[in-house]
Design a protein around this nucleic acid. Structure first.
Length: 495
RNA sequence: GGGCCGGUAGCUCAGUGGUAGAGCAUCUGACUUUUAAUCAGGUGGUCGCGGGUUCGAUCCCCGCCCGGCUCACCA
């Protein structure tokens, strides 16, 4: 009987499934409980010497068979659970003829449970001596090669489940990202912040300058946008009396994909009533090293050739002083003479265009000249008004807003400001954005009447903060691509 | 979107204008502490897709698809 549609390996394994069922064995078991994690077994017997055994402790372990070495009447298999491996040894004398024969029939990829005691082989590897075993899940597909593993990026991202099996360091890194999020959540809760959830489907996307995804609600017959930021809803909650809140969740921006951009990404935003951006800076410079300590065990990270110390305090540098130092022009000079600003930037190998304005020139100077030079953690503070339609003005200068960005390893880790709570000023800023939109700026901020109505009821003074979790994870875990800290990064659909 | 690089067996990769290769995996046999186990033998391929040139294309040309890097935009 020819079934050319089914690959050979799968046909063989499907036949094994049939044979197992014929002998009364279910190849997809219901449970194997209790069990001990492989890593725990290894940790408990780290001191066991070669050729010694420890028969007093019996273990039930389970995992995926990632390799096997058959020796006639004996057999070694290596099990993996998550990112821990443990070798299992079995022989025909202990298992008996029937059970041993079935064991030699298992394939790399199968998931099995084993019961036995540990010993350490002559070559020094901690090993479970199997006294009995059971098939838990039959695998129908071959695993990638044991030596070179799975390298192909496309397969790794499309079939992350295989990547996680074949590359335990990937599994470890993605798990560490999870630990980062939970550590952040705990850190904030311990300081009185309450976690909230605000709409992802929004009638008007706001809180950031970006192009949104559009979707449609059938029953309401209305277009909705996937949020580009939760900011305006969190501020509505501040009006409502929540005075320390945060949200950790996905934002969606309909823009390019790169080493540092994924269309959906995770953001932590927090709002803290009755403080300004100075308190937020203190929070950030204390929280980041605390999170690093939990996730990596230290407050130092290495990015490229640079050792970075995250411990506080972090220096504060104004945009104005950084511009003077790196571009040779003050903010006021750049505002007054955009021609000179363009020349100065062009001289530093920054692409400038005719349509560049004061605001975009400052933005380019920060991104291409100033940030890349800030390796150790630094707060860049006090931005020009034009770049920040939701931030409050400085008491000393109406053209400056109280805003900061933490820069680590040359990269922006977040964005924060003293929140604008003057509804009249906010309306003016929205109207300015509306003019930009008419002039063709697709990313200009929309005018949100309900948000203004909320501000008119009165929002307490507050500091706000957004931190990109993906980029923070990259920095702490030394990932070069955002795809390495996202379980299922966005790819073009498979065809 | 532009530029550059890539797609060959399940995996990692060689390769040539004249019937397609290796290692590992898989299959058969041997082997009771191996560990990239070992030894002997075998199976396995629309060479990303579609056109063109040619007696003949996996190879050369054109178009497309998918991925990577990079530039632009963005966090």
């Amino acid at each position: 009987m020819e079934t050319p549609d089914i690959p050979e390996w799968e046909r063989d394994r499907l036949a094994k499934v049939d044979r197992l069922r014929d002998t009364g064995i279910e190849p997809y078991a219901r449970s194997f409980d209790p069990r001990t994690h492989l890593g725990e077994v290894a940790a408990r017997h780290a001191g066991l010497r070669s050729s010694e055994k420890e028969e007093s402790a019996q273990y039930r372990v389970a995992g995926r068979v990632i390799s096997r070495r058959e020796h006639g009447k004996a057999l070694f298999v290596t099990l993996r659970d998550g990112w821990d491996d443990l070798q299992v040894y079995a022989n025909v004398d202990t298992l008996g003829e029937a059970s041993f024969r079935l064991l030699t029939d298992i394939d790399v990829g199968d998931i099995v449970g084993c019961v036995g005691h540990v010993f350490r082989t002559r070559r020094g590897e901690l090993t479970l001596f199997a006294e009995s075993w059971v098939l838990l899940t039959k695998s129908l597909r071959p695993l990638p090669e044991k030596w070179h593993g799975l390298h192909d990026r496309e397969t790794r991202y499309r079939q992350r489940y295989v990547d996680l099996i074949a590359n335990p360091e990937v599994a470890w890194q993605l798990r560490a990202r999870g630990k980062l999020v939970s550590a952040m959540r705990r850190y904030l809760e311990d300081r009185g912040f309450v976690e909230v959830e605000t709409p992802i489907l929004q009638p008007l996307p706001g809180g950031a300058l970006a192009r949104p995804f559009v979707t449609h609600h059938n029953a309401l017959d209305t277009d909705l946008y996937l949020r580009i930021a939760p900011e305006l809803y969190l501020k509505r909650l501040m009006v409502g009396g929540f005075d320390r809140i945060f949200e950790i969740g996905k934002n969606f921006r309909n823009e390019g994909i790169s080493l540092v951009h994924n269309p959906e990404f995770t953001m932590m935003e927090l709002y803290w009533a009755y403080v300004d951006y100075n308190a937020i800076m203190e929070l950030v410079e204390n929280m980041i090293p605390a999170l690093a300590l939990e996730v990596t065990g230290g407050t130092q990270v290495v990015i490229g050739d640079n050792a970075i110390e995250l411990a506080p305090p972090w220096p504060r540098r104004t945009v104005d002083s950084l511009l003077e130092e790196n571009v040779g022009l003050s903010l006021a000079q750049m505002r007054a003479e955009t021609g000179a600003a363009k020349a100065a930037l062009a001289g530093r190998r920054v692409d400038v265009e005719n349509r560049d304005t004061f605001a975009t020139l400052v933005d380019k100077a920060l991104k291409h000249v100033i940030f890349p030079a800030l390796i150790q953690p630094t707060f860049v503070i006090d931005y020009p008004l034009e770049l920040s339609p939701l931030a409050k003005c400085s008491p000393d200068d109406p053209l400056i807003v109280e805003r900061f960005q933490p820069i680590i390893g040359g990269k922006e880790m977040g964005n924060a400001f003293s929140e604008l709570n003057d509804p009249v000023d906010q309306r003016r800023r929205f109207e300015e954005q509306a003019r930009n939109k008419e002039a063709g700026d697709e990313e200009a901020h929309a005018l949100d009447e309900d948000f203004l109505r909320a501000l008119e009821y009165g929002m307490p003074p507050a500091g706000g903060l957004g931190i990109g979790i993906d980029r923070l994870a990259m920095m702490l875990l030394g990932a070069e691509s955002i795809r390495d800290v996202i379980l299922f990064p966005q790819l073009r659909p498979e065809r």
